[in-house]
């Protein structure tokens, strides 16, 4: 029982990390960037290459790859979204062009790294674990859960308390109004993409470390779950995404343990459906005021 709670929290923190970055652009700015999962994958490989070929420790490879992920995010915005901005259907056309970019990036990954699963070399992270009651928690799991909670705090602070956060919310409200008020809309969106993709990169590296598994299709494993978590938590709500991430992780783990893995996705998406019927705006979603 204790162990399964740990398993669920750990899996949930992976979902939460992925969803937090995702929702900054999707939930707040209403831009669905389907290339997010490609960033997740490519940056896991980037960290792997730094560790394997440059022989640098993971605590240097991790920030390097997070930075690379952020820059890749700016590139994605420039290539897939910015040229289309200002069109009446820019959200849908951007969504489609981001699918194209995701496909291209995935093909690049496949070409560069091959279809085989790779893993970080042994000893990349210390193999220590601690016991809590009858549950065993590895140091890496503690770090990942901690990073997820820290990111939640930082992002919430960023959105609510900083100048950039206010600008992001202003752009979300109305790009036109924000522009009139002197906000550089393109720069704010680029900054959001940078932060979002940096977070996507962080979760990719941690995912690769946690499951000893880096492969060109790894992003697909979390992409749909990430979207579900955002919607379940309520669009644009950072605490909502985190709570939904942990809830989904626990739900999946207990479904697998009690009913078998065949029911896992059926139960997870069934609950998602039920929540949306009962609370159309998600767990912590706020009623939209901007139509008023």
């Amino acid at each position: 029982m204790g162990q399964q709670i740990v398993n669920g929290l750990f899996l949930g923190s992976i979902y939460a990390l992925f969803a937090l970055g995702y929702t900054l652009v999707f939930g707040v700015l209403d831009i669905l960037n389907l290339a997010h999962q490609a960033v997740f994958m490519l940056c896991a490989y980037a960290a792997l290459l730094v560790v394997v070929h440059l022989h640098l420790p993971i605590y240097l490879a991790f920030p390097a790859s997070v930075l690379a992920g952020g820059l890749l995010g700016i590139l994605i915005d420039r290539i897939a979204f910015r040229p289309l901005r200002g069109r009446s259907d820019s959200n849908i056309s951007g969504l489609i062009s981001s699918i194209a970019l995701a496909t291209i990036l995935e093909a690049v990954g496949l070409q560069l790294f091959g279809p085989d699963v790779e893993r970080f070399p042994l000893g990349t992270v210390p193999d220590r674990s601690l016991r809590i009651g009858d549950a065993i928690v590895s140091e890496l799991q503690v770090v990942i859960i901690g990073i997820a909670l820290a990111m939640l705090a930082v992002l919430t602070f960023l959105l609510q308390r900083t100048r950039l956060g206010r600008q992001i919310r202003a752009v979300a409200e109305s790009p036109l109004a924000a522009r009139i008020l002197g906000v550089n809309v393109d720069r704010v969106i680029a900054a959001s993409f940078f932060i979002s993709s940096a977070l996507g990169s962080a979760s990719g590296v941690l995912f690769g470390l946690a499951f000893n598994n880096v492969a060109p299709d790894m992003g697909r494993a979390v992409e749909l779950k990430g979207l579900a978590v955002i919607i379940l938590g309520g669009m644009g709500s950072m605490p909502g995404a985190a709570i939904a991430g942990f809830a989904l992780g626990l739900l999946e783990v207990f479904t697998v343990a009690k009913l078998g893995s065949s029911y896992r996705d059926a139960i997870a998406f069934g609950v998602l459906f039920l929540v949306l019927v009962l609370r159309p705006r998600g767990l912590l979603g706020q009623a939209a005021l901007r139509e008023a």
């Binding site: 162990q3 399964q4 398993n7 669920g8 750990f10 899996l11 995912f207 499951f211 598994n213 299709d217 790894m218 697909r220 494993a221 999946e252 783990v253 207990f254 697998v256 343990a257 078998g260 893995s261 065949s262």
Partner: peptide, 20 residues
Amino acid sequence: TQTFSTKDRDFNAQLTALKN
């Protein structure tokens, strides 16, 4: 008996249930 699907990377839930 526990199962998983070919895309899975996380087997902690199944393994914990079997270990118990």
